[in-house]
Amino acid sequence: MSILTLENVVKNYDKHCAVDNVSFAVPKGSIYGLLGPNGAGKTSLIRIITTITRADSGQVYLDGERLNANHPTQIGYMPEERGLYKKMKVGEQLMYLAQLKGMPKREAKKNLMEWLEKFEITDWWGKKVEELSKGMQQKIQFIATVVHRPKLLILDEPFSGLDPINANLIKDEIYQLNKEGSSIIFSTHRMEQVEEICEYISLINQGKNVLSGKVADVKQDFKQHLFSIGYSGDLPAELVMQDAENANFEIVERKEQELLVKIESDEASNALLQYLIQKGVHIRAFHEILPTLNEIFIRQVNGESPVK
């Protein structure tokens, strides 16, 4: 079951196609990465999901229902460009934003106090936002995004501008919310963060969804059967000479006490090992190297398709 389903979504601005026939489904309870370079159409896509704008064509379903006016209360959205009313007090501001999300006053207050206690910032309630540092404002922004316990949480570059300590704090909270049942869409152009956090991804480039799936599957699909071999001692002469006549492998790179070897298929890995052992190589380590999302992305953008 998916929390969010997009079917052939299209959005045009003037003469520019921001979202070009995008389809994907976010499984319930997952952390879903929406990847793409700046200007790829991620924000346009998110604005459609958050009902800020409407798709020119195509369908969006939230929890099985066609996207409608009641859905904003079930979605939490933290835009990339953060914004709060600078002159407003933290408490008033959070109450306002929570009530706009449809929370009754009392419940909003109770939830907000819990969050402030969790972050140990209850004494900020009466402070004006402009008195807080940027990192502090980010925390307030995060609370405003999640206070109404959204089914779907959309975070656009949630860690930008955060110091490592606060980034970790927010990351833990994201995991916690996910555990409690929120599905999370995490939009970013920082691939390494996605690899760490997300279970599923979609790659967006020039308005198109170029790739979707489980991170592990995507990596499997794009792997090039690269293996790293750690050894000690010297390599036998044939290997140094790289006589490839009977060996169905290719040495991609030689490092100090390490070889990077490409084989034709996974099944050939045992054969490779046997061959090396037979040649008298003293093997210390042997492991597969999967491509990073960054590499996959670059390859994908450059027009390569997965190696099947």
């Binding site: 800020i52 006016a69 959205y77 835009p79 914004g83 709060l84 934003l97 405003a144």
Partner: peptide, 17 residues
Amino acid sequence: EEKMNRIVEVVISSVKP
């Protein structure tokens, strides 16, 4: 001010512009 503050995007994800 709301536009420059960028708060507007947060608000209109809850209400219609």
